[in-house]
Amino acid sequence: MRLTGTHVLTIEALLGEVRDVGLTPTGRRRVIPLVGGTVRDGLDGEVLPGGADWNLEHADGSVELWARYELRLADGSVVVVTNTATHEPDAQLPILTSPRFDVGDGGPVWLRTGVFVGALVPVLEEHRVVLEVHRVDVQA
């Protein structure tokens, strides 16, 4: 058996102003709002405002990404995205992530049932991130 990957969509999320919560018992917490964006290259739609990445920097410098936000696809269906990763302080780009999708009525069920890997590239000078999403499959 062998794993293969297929690019299925690109999410380009626009970022709002970072809120520095400060030092917590588990590390330094920052909340990075997602204020809009687009979905393309396989599915078309938009990133709805209101989501965020609840970013946590640990004492060892590693950074934990936990983002949750919604997409509205061109057909009107809504998809909830939860994207996670933990990476080293000076991680090479792209950062590999684990996106999961919760699909509303009428949406693409294959997003809910698949296994996905994201390649995340922050473009901080433009206040955005680009997430290339790949579905992982097994070939016999």
Rank of each mutant, 00 (worst) to 15 (best):
D44L: 12
E46K: 09
E46Y: 04
V47Q: 02
V47F: 03
L48H: 00
L48R: 03
G50P: 05
N55W: 11
L56G: 14
E57H: 08
D60C: 09
D60V: 13
G61P: 12
S62H: 15
S62P: 10
E64Q: 14
L65M: 13
W66Q: 15
W66T: 13
W66R: 15
A67I: 02
A67Y: 04
R68A: 01
Y69P: 00
Y69Q: 00
Y69M: 00
E70H: 08
E70V: 07
L71V: 01
L71A: 02
L73C: 05
A74Y: 09
D75H: 06
D75P: 06
S77H: 03
V78I: 14
V78D: 00
V78N: 01
V79C: 01
V79F: 04
V79W: 04
V80K: 08
V81W: 02
T82V: 15
N83D: 05
T84S: 00
T84W: 03
T86S: 07
P89W: 11
D90E: 08
D90V: 09
A91T: 07
Q92P: 10
Q92R: 14
L93E: 04
P94H: 03
I95R: 05
S98E: 14
P99D: 00
P99Q: 03
P99A: 02
R100I: 01
R100N: 01
D102A: 15
